[in-house]
Amino acid sequence: MAKFKKKANITQDIPTASLPDIIFMLLFFFMVTTVLRESTIMVKQSIPKATQLRKLEQKKLVSYMYVGKPNDPKKFGSEPRIQANDAFIDIDGIIQFIEEEKGKLAESEKEQLTISLKVDDETKMGIVVDITQKMRDVNARKLMYAAGKKAEL
């Protein structure tokens, strides 16, 4: 066992000189990947979970609508409301909102506009159905119910 003789007089410290560099690298990674929210969400959002999720490929073709109970019930009431961009809209405002979103896209892409509905799971179907009806009216037929990943049993 002479080969494995302990070198007792060597210090056992791990060199930590490069630790800041490693941490900085991680830091830059997170700084770059972080997307700060463009709009503050003013409704309660607890997204339901599902298993059969599909990813949306092209982000620029996606518009978001948030549905849920307002976070500030004194100001906006306790009934579920629809938020698009930074403001609450009522059910007829959806048509205008979708037209505006379509206006931002090129002519050939207008058909492909996808609406991502982020609906709080305590919401009743009534308001969701109203939204889909309005979407059909303005021929925005691609819809995604946003959902989180549920662990499969």
Partner: peptide, 9 residues
Amino acid sequence: TDKGLTITL
């Protein structure tokens, strides 16, 4: 998380 259930109306 741009994931969810897609449907076409």
